[in-house]
Amino acid sequence: MQPYNKHQSIAALMNRSNVDTDQIIPKQFLKKVERSGFGIHLFHDWRYNEDGSKNADFELNKPAFKGAKILVVGDNFGCGSSREHAPWAIEDYGFNTIISTSYADIFYNNCFKNSILPIIATKKQLADLMGEISANEGVSFTVDLEKQQLTTPAGNGFTFEIDPFRKENLAKGLDDIGLTLLQTDAIDQYEAKHKQNFPWLWA
């Protein structure tokens, strides 16, 4: 995984709440057996017109948001299915940071497996960020994971919370499976106990 470094980049605004994973990546794109190439299908039904051309009314199609790495969205982002295709599409499109007041649990977890930092803001903080972007489309924010700090030109930044282990793994780009495999002895010991406690599962 990519380590997550401090960066300054354009923040795109999508002022919609309860955006579900069916919108992030519609199911017709879930049939692929590869992990890459989902970016062009991100928000497909909103992003493209019937004839396949770009929908000029869709927020992310605004020229000012081109190249944005930060996505600012409404409450409860990523609800619905467990499909990791959603963060794959977000990451492949070019975002590495999302800012919202809340995320669905599975989606939140999935972000960390894909070098995406989902920042949790309060309602007020989010409203201020949205206001700043609306007033100045194309504005860049700075994200410093190390300091857990978001900074913006108009001073709407804040420090955000994140679990220490998630922070560490994201910052260093550590592979979860590799980390867990370091605990193989403990897993073996637990499994021996499991066989004793639940013999019917091993019969």
Binding site: I106, N109, K113, F165, I187
Partner: peptide, 21 residues
């Protein structure tokens, strides 16, 4: 019983465990 992402599917296959909060 709960849903997981594909990276976690791989994690469980490889280790029979999941890091959880």
């Amino acid at each position: 019983a709960f849903g997981i992402g594909t990276s976690e599917v791989e994690h469980v296959m490889a280790t029979q465990t999941l890091p959880q909060k």
